[in-house]
């Protein structure tokens, strides 16, 4: 099963933000979206998750039109982590992660167990009873990550599950960047389809099965990182001269600028 964008375009206030984009996100795979600032990466995620209706084209979730899924059922299959979450009420980390359990009726005991495990997974157990409003940027982002993980913690009977992450590692130090990639790979191996926007091409190359390069609202290239990442493409899209090498251990492409 897939998340599927069929020939979508998005026009907002006179601007063409996306043009004729078709994209298939497969369950069990990690799809990374890269591209320069303002290329339309976040807009694409917004259309893909139903935040903004496409001006043209259709989005499908597990072979059914996205906007025809009842909201609650959709929430049991699709979790979305936005770039920024502005939360200025003093919930504890526990309570924030608990919000991810709203679409489910699994009971307090089970929910509490999932909350504890999700916080543990993102290395945030020590934050459990601390106030969200008093955390650092990286801590907040980890708690929000735990929230969307808690939302799709158990597989759904409705269909395959998908996780959409908009720059999940932007506030993270090296170890938490790596931790996030490990979590993403682990989810994919459990059958979850992951889509994420990342800026670091090497991070993308290391963990993505598919790489989608967006430039000026259109797909400039897509495929496996080995095929997509070329010196010409990086020059064309980012205007940066780069050398593509190979990571000595992972054998994945390594972009040196």
């Amino acid at each position: 099963m897939t998340m599927l964008a069929k020939d979508i375009s998005l026009h907002l206030s006179g601007f063409d933000l996306l043009r004729n984009i078709s994209l298939e996100v497969e369950a069990g795979k990690v799809t990374a979206i890269v591209g320069p600032n303002g290329a339309g990466k976040s807009s694409l995620l917004k259309v893909l998750t139903g935040d903004i209706p496409a001006s043209k084209g259709d989005v499908y979730l597990n072979s059914r039109l996205l906007n025809q899924w009842p909201l609650l059922e959709k929430a049991q299959m699709l979790a979305v982590l936005p770039q920024h979450t502005l939360l200025n009420f003093s919930f504890t980390a526990d309570e924030v992660v608990g919000l991810g359990r709203i679409p489910h009726q699994t009971g307090i005991v089970k929910d509490q167990q999932i909350i504890t495990e999700a916080l543990e997974l993102v290395d945030a157990s020590y934050l459990q009873r601390r106030f969200y409003t008093q955390m650092s940027g990286g801590e907040k982002q980890r708690v929000q990550l735990a929230r969307v993980l808690a939302q799709i913690w158990q597989s759904s009977t409705l269909g395959d599950q998908f996780l959409v992450l908009d720059e999940p590692t932007s506030a993270f130090d090296l170890s938490h960047q790596k931790l996030t990639l490990d979590i993403v790979r682990q989810l994919a191996s459990k059958g979850v389809g992951v889509v994420m926007v990342v800026h670091d091409l090497n991070l993308a190359a290391r963990c993505a099965d598919n790489l989608v390069v967006i430039d000026g609202g259109v797909i400039a290239a897509h495929g496996s990182p080995e095929i997509v990442l070329t010196e010409t493409l990086i020059d064309d899209v980012f205007n940066v001269k780069a050398i593509i090498s190979e990571h000595p251990i992972t054998k994945r492409p390594l972009v040196i600028t």
Binding site: G50, L71, P82, T85, F89, G100, I102
Partner: peptide, 20 residues
Amino acid sequence: SKALNALLLGESEARHLGIN
């Protein structure tokens, strides 16, 4: 009340948690 809790995150976040 749960919907209001979710809304504290933002409207789009609340929608993604299944709230109308």
